[in-house]
Design a protein around this nucleic acid. Structure first.
Length: 828
RNA sequence: GCCGGAGUGGCGGAAUUGGCAGACGCACAGGACUUAAAAUCCUGCGAUUCUUACAGGAUCGUACCGGUUCGAUCCCGGUCUCCGGCACCA
């Protein structure tokens, strides 16, 4: 063994060896317990960043550890390779997106390989390759066939910078999630996936995911936003049509003093005709037109509206109620219309105050401090029903049920559940995405491309201008085609799919990545699915993770996925920060993984990232911390490189002769137990590393002792176990150490060490003696004293404890065997 | 505004079931080695304080105030700060 830790040579040597031996190739094996370990695949931007290094280092620790524990581990990697940056490069530099993307993939694959990650590259997928998007199109057609994909004209979110529409989930604070440009509304005919059909199941099945962070489940729950209430029909004075509203508070029906339609509601133009309010309404609508979507939805915006000159009739008491339009009612939730109860809804309250509308209470809070006839704000909590005819005296929460029953019996309304979740708009007016495999025929309407004709290839004869409609429209050959049904002239859809579709099923494709007959072989999916552990950034808590759950449920329903949920356990890793903020080019605080690998090696980079912070927390980058990790690896290397032949060549054995043997064996077994638990059960890699450091410190202590203090066989064993335990964290160095103490085979498939329970405990343990809860003394007692009474007796008999108790009376003792005793005393 | 989460040395963090607060590392200080430096090895390292000193002892200390308990970083109530999600969803 070289006397110096030459990390670049070592890392190169082992990477080549792994590649040559095909070490990480995985095949289905019904005899072995499978483990599907997945990290979120990256967008191939061309450069690996520290977030990737963290994500993939965490995954690799688990993959290597579980392999050593005997699991058949599926650990794949691929590329989420459709998307805007490639197209922007085409517009800016004239490079075709396909070339740009594949160059980037090549570069990033090399970078991932320098990290020594244990991927089965035979299963690599790239979503932009026709052999992948062929099956994307096939899945889309399955959605269409079951009525879950449809085209509809609707006001949609339009990003003027990206020149494309966006899904609701991709609009953050009224701006584009990608480029932060302010999003505008545009009326367009677009493709949607009916995710709302799955809303209830997406919500309910969160319960089946105890291995997910509560935070992520809560975010999804809020996003789905289920509310139970009733649809109620209000008659409109002098008209045939009814006004249907949705409310979660049917108990307040007697307190309605006005009604509101969303400004975009189709009834508005009908009703306003001949009402005498045409001018006022037109002026109000015009004023709204000039507000951006952000301003329109700001909670700080004052509630404003205008009376439209018509009245509704309250079905409960036949009161005449004025109808308004107002800026605070949304067209795309519920029925786009509400009943307003100012006494019991804060928004309605503010509006009523502004427009001098009466605020009659129908629920008594039973609180003398609240003046019901002169409310300062709406009372939204539970109370006793008043002014509500036959419902008076009921508890308002019970009254909700009673009102719904009444409405249903009288045919005035019905129980309804509404979700905040909207259908998923998946059309994008871009080139670099999966073509939507649909054809429009004058006679037959929208018809899917025949499955045997898939994939619908992206045309290459297009222009990239970055403006106007989809670039696919500029292809002279793409659009014109024949109807798959009647053979008549027809036109292809020119929009492409949102790239979030591509990443909603890649975990299934990995189970059978090269299949060209089907999306995957169901038998293989049955073996590997579900993903046992999924790892990625928390920024995907809603978008990707909800879409993937939706896809999987659909694929489950049609018999292609074996489980209702795709990801059993989820680890959301924290961000990598520098100087307290996210690394970014604009802040100039980016540390490149390449540079760190070159200076210290991949093992140091991995170790630092795993050691500095628990995985789900943010990680503050520290240059001196990296130095420290590098120093530790040097220290480990030297330990083995400087090993005397007597130890190097000794047969490893757990032979214990001396007291130092006892101590070393104890530390070694403690370390094995802790590292095993920290990796597999707690996923606290930082404490696993610190435990290994403790072992290394102990080995250094032993090394400095006079000859013969520690048995050679035991020391040899400790070094072997050290190498095995280091393997998941710093695989290259671990292999080198393993070879350095006389092994010729790679340690990758070597068994993980197990702790000997007999050696986990010492003969004597130090316990704490407290007097009235304060630590006064530490004494040693036999560790097998597990009986509380015997333990207390032994401790009290100790002369040191006797001295402490002089002049005091023992009131009570609280013994905790093996740990502590608290003696409650009082002065005599 | 609503809903979550978190506050521990100079710093990153540890304390797994209510039982020794600060493991491990970084930074810093001192020492050994060296002509010297780097590297390496060893030692110290929460605050205040007592004791002539050695050795040791005392008090305080996990954002703040209070509670439960023999015992609280951990449980309960309240306050403050920071972070994240949602934000007119009727």
């Amino acid at each position: 063994m070289d006397q110096q830790y030459r990390f670049s040579e070592i890392e190169k040597k082992w990477q080549e060896r792994w590649e040559k031996d095909n070490s990480f190739r995985t095949v289905e094996d019904p005899q072995r317990q499978k483990f599907y370990l997945l990290e979120m695949f990256p967008y191939p931007s061309g450069k690996l960043h520290m977030g990737h290094v963290r994500n993939y280092s965490i995954g690799d620790v688990l993959a290597r550890h579980l392999t050593m524990r005997g699991y058949n581990v599926l650990h794949p990697m691929g590329w989420d390779s459709f998307g805007l940056p490639a197209e922007n490069a085409a517009i800016k530099h004239g490079i075709h997106p396909d070339i740009w993307t594949h160059d980037n993939i090549k570069e990033m694959r090399e970078q991932l390989k320098t990290l020594g990650l244990s991927y089965d590259w035979n299963r690599e997928v790239a979503t932009c390759d026709p052999d992948y998007y062929k099956w994307m199109q096939w899945i889309f057609i399955q959605f269409f066939k079951r009525g879950l994909a449809y085209k509809k004209k609707n006001p949609v979110n339009w990003c003027p910078a990206c020149q494309t529409v966006l899904a609701n989930e991709q609009v953050v604070d009224g701006a584009c999630e990608r480029c932060h440009e302010v999003v505008v509304k545009k009326e367009l005919e677009q493709w949607y996936l009916k995710i709302t059909d799955y809303a209830q199941r997406l919500l309910d099945d969160l319960e089946q995911l105890p291995g997910w962070p509560a935070k992520v489940k809560l975010m999804q729950k809020n996003w789905i936003g289920r509310s139970v209430g009733a649809d109620v029909d209000f008659a409109i004075e002098g008209r045939e049509e009814k006004m249907r509203i949705f409310t979660t508070r049917p108990d307040t029906l007697y307190g309605v003093t006005y009604m509101v339609l969303a400004p975009e509601h189709p009834l508005v133009s009908e009703l306003v005709k001949g009402s005498g309010q045409e001018k006022a309404v037109a002026a109000f609508l015009d004023q709204l037109q000039h507000l951006s979507d952000i301003d329109r939805s700001a909670t700080t915006l004052e509630k404003e509206g205008v009376f439209i000159g018509r009245y509704a009739i309250n079905p409960m008491n036949n009161e005449r109620i004025p109808i308004y339009i107002a800026n605070y009612v949304l067209m795309d939730y519920g029925t786009g219309a509400i009943m307003a109860v100012p006494a019991h809804d804060q928004r309605d309250f503010e509006f009523a105050v502004k427009y001098n509308i009466p605020i009659p209470p129908v629920i008594d809070p039973g609180d003398p401090e609240i003046d019901l006839l002169n409310l300062e704000s709406a009372f939204e909590a539970e109370g006793t029903m008043i002014n509500s005819g036959p419902f008076n005296g009921m508890n308002s929460a019970d009254a909700i049920e009673a009102f719904i029953e009444h409405l249903e019996k009288e045919g005035l309304g019905s129980r309804t559940i509404n979700f905040r979740l909207r259908d998923w708009l998946i059309s994008r007016q871009r080139y670099w995405g999966t073509p939507i495999p649909m054809i429009h025929c004058q006679k037959c309407g929208w018809v899917p491309e025949k499955e045997e004709n898939l994939p619908v290839l992206l045309p290459t004869d297009v222009e990239f201008t970055g403006r106007g409609e989809s670039p696919l429209a500029s292809s002279p050959t793409f659009r014109k085609t024949e109807c798959p049904l009647c053979g008549g002239p027809a036109e292809r859809e020119i929009d492409t799919m949102d790239t979030f579709l591509d990443s909603s099923w890649y975990f299934l494709r990995y189970t059978d990545a090269k299949n060209d007959k089907a999306a995957w072989d169901v038998a293989k999916a049955n073996y590997w699915m579900p993903v046992d552990q999924y790892i990625g950034g928390v920024e995907h808590a809603i978008l990707h993770l909800m879409y993937a759950r939706f896809f999987n449920k659909f694929l489950y329903d049609i018999g292609l996925s074996p489980t209702v949920e795709p990801f059993t356990n989820l680890l959301t890793q924290g961000m990598v920060l520098k100087d307290g903020s996210k690394m970014s080019k604009s802040k100039g605080n980016v540390v490149s993984p390449e540079e760190i690998i070159q200076r210290y090696g991949a093992d140091t980079a991995r170790l630092f990232i795993l050691f500095a912070s628990p995985p789900e927390k943010e990680l503050e980058w520290s240059d001196t911390g990296v130095e420290g990790s590098f120093r530790f690896l040097n220290r480990v290397y030297r330990l083995v490189a400087e090993l005397p032949d007597s130890i190097r060549q000794a047969d490893s054995s757990a032979q214990i002769v001396t007291s130092d043997d006892k101590e070393l064996a104890h530390v070694l077994n403690q370390t094995i137990a802790k590292v095993t638990e920290d990796i597999a059960e707690r996923m606290n890699f930082n404490t696993a590393v610190s435990a290994i450091m403790v072992l290394v410190n102990e080995l250094y202590r032993c090394r400095a002792l006079p000859d013969g203090s520690v048995s050679a066989g035991l020391f040899h064993l400790a070094i072997e176990d050290l190498a095995l335990m280091l393997a998941p964290f710093v695989p290259h160095l671990a292999e080198e150490l393993w070879e350095g103490i006389g092994h010729s085979e790679s340690l990758y498939r070597e068994a993980w060490p197990t702790a000997d329970p007999a050696l986990l405990v010492r003969d004597e343990v130090e316990i704490v003696v407290q007097l009235n809860g304060k630590i006064k003394e530490k004494i040693k007692v036999a560790s097998d004293l597990t009986d509380a009474a015997a333990f207390a007796e032994t401790v009290l008999a100790n002369p040191k404890v006797q001295a402490l108790l002089a002049g005091q009376t023992v009131v009570k003792t609280v013994p905790v065997p093996g740990k502590l005793i608290n003696i409650v005393v009082k002065k005599e």
